[in-house]
Design a binder for these strands. Structure first.
Lengths: 236, 236
DNA sequence: TTCGTCAATATCGTCTGACGATTTCATCTG
DNA sequence: CAGATGAAATCGTCAGACGATATTGACGAA
């Protein structure tokens, strides 16, 4: 009764593939994560045009699923979808960066303040995570600054105990910002920035909310000054 | 029937329809906005199951477009899409509400602080908007509390001058929260709550950032106490 | 009667193919 | 060389299909 044509391709549809963490992921989530990761690893760069057909072939998915993923990223402000003009990885201008940092600072402050109230063993976890990542940065092994960031924020939000924070905080947009200014940053600057995470972690570990918030403010103030020293073409 | 036959339906695809504000809107945005509005007007209630076929027929759109819209709302935390279990309007439990209010308070504080630095005529705009909406609430005409909220926050973010704030602030989730507790709130409580917006607006108008932030904190503290007095079934 | 098992149904996730609309770009002409 | 023009590329939307899964209701056993 259904069409006489026989599909010769295996057509393995709707199969839940477990991800690295073992959790089942739909195609949409998986693709969105691939693109986010691609931004962190510079496989995609801000301003780049994402052609749908290309991606469907590269990722072996249908256009429907791809577009759902793109729509998701669009909601997060990672890509812009202009009518008939296609999907582009967002590029942030100076004002967008300033606004982003201000909001980030406010949310991370809250996270740090809350984190000081977490059980001691959890706070130690944060310090340990940063310490480990920071060590690998100085060593010869592949210490990825983007990975340090990710680990730090994931852990911080985790121990803050507020489930709304990770949903709301525009970390992916911050990844965009990082990717955009990366070519203009020296290793020394990156190292110094990573130290900031350590200082915040220690302040959180101390259990003093005022100190923790101060550490965050200092960190973002330094980031702002770094942005001010960036060449104009780095911020459009 | 279908072979060789001409489709007698107009098939008006990919036609940009201007919305109420005159801006061109894609189908996805339009549908997402319809659903958001439907939550504000109780046409959709928290916990409700959204059946895709139903919505495609009701809204006269294809399943692809609908799913893109749902994916967008999913990213905003408005609906949950469980594998094969379907799409549901989110229901917030007590902890989710606490977390949401804490994040909201932090972001609205920032907005209010910034707004005090806006030009006087803009600040007057905020006060006027709240005043007008508030009056209509006491009068006999249809003053919708949800509309007051929306106007207040839209204006506040607008004059705050930070473009990241409206993107990040989970106002739609707050709408969810409002819709969920609405059956358990008296008119008196709603009126008192709306007064809070007026106090914030006045504090912003005064130009004192400390006063503005205090007004916000007070408002949210009152909201939290209101939540505490809610019957358990209101917060799952 | 109540509870657990099993088949039927409803709904979902994904894929394929199609077509008009719009932008982009190379080509042509003055 | 600037502007007109036409073809190609890409997008937004739709329609239909099919396997996979959850839910429901019937049915028999305790």
């Amino acid at each position: 009764m259904s069409g006489g044509g026989k599909p010769n391709s295996p057509k393995r549809t709707a199969v839940a593939t477990p991800d690295a963490d073992g959790r089942a992921m739909g195609t949409t989530e998986r693709v969105a994560e691939i693109i986010r990761q691609g931004i962190r690893t510079s496989q995609f760069v801000p301003g780049q045009h994402l052609v749908e057909i290309d991606l469907t072939q590269r990722l072996q998915i249908s256009r429907s699923s791809l577009r759902e993923a793109l729509r998701h990223l669009n909601g997060d402000g990672i890509v812009s979808m202009g009518r008939y003009r296609g999907t582009h990885i967002c590029r942030l201008d100076r004002k967008a960066i300033d606004d982003l940092l201000e909001v980030l600072e406010q949310l991370v402050s809250l996270a740090a303040r809350r984190a000081t109230k977490a059980p001691l063993e959890k706070r130690r976890l944060l310090d340990a995570a940063v310490e480990a990542s920071g060590k690998s940065l100085n060593g010869v092994d592949n210490g990825n600054p983007m990975l340090v960031r990710q680990t730090f924020y994931d852990t911080l939000f985790e121990i803050s105990g507020n489930d709304e924070l990770p949903r709301v905080t525009p970390l992916s947009r911050a990844d965009l910002f990082r990717a955009q200014i990366r070519p203009y940053q020296s290793h020394e600057e990156q190292r110094k920035h990573a130290e900031g995470y350590g200082l915040i972690a220690q302040a959180v570990l101390s259990g003093d909310p005022v100190k923790a918030e101060e550490a965050v403010r200092t960190h973002f103030e330094a980031t702002r000054q770094m942005v001010d020293r960036l060449p104009p073409q780095a911020v459009e």
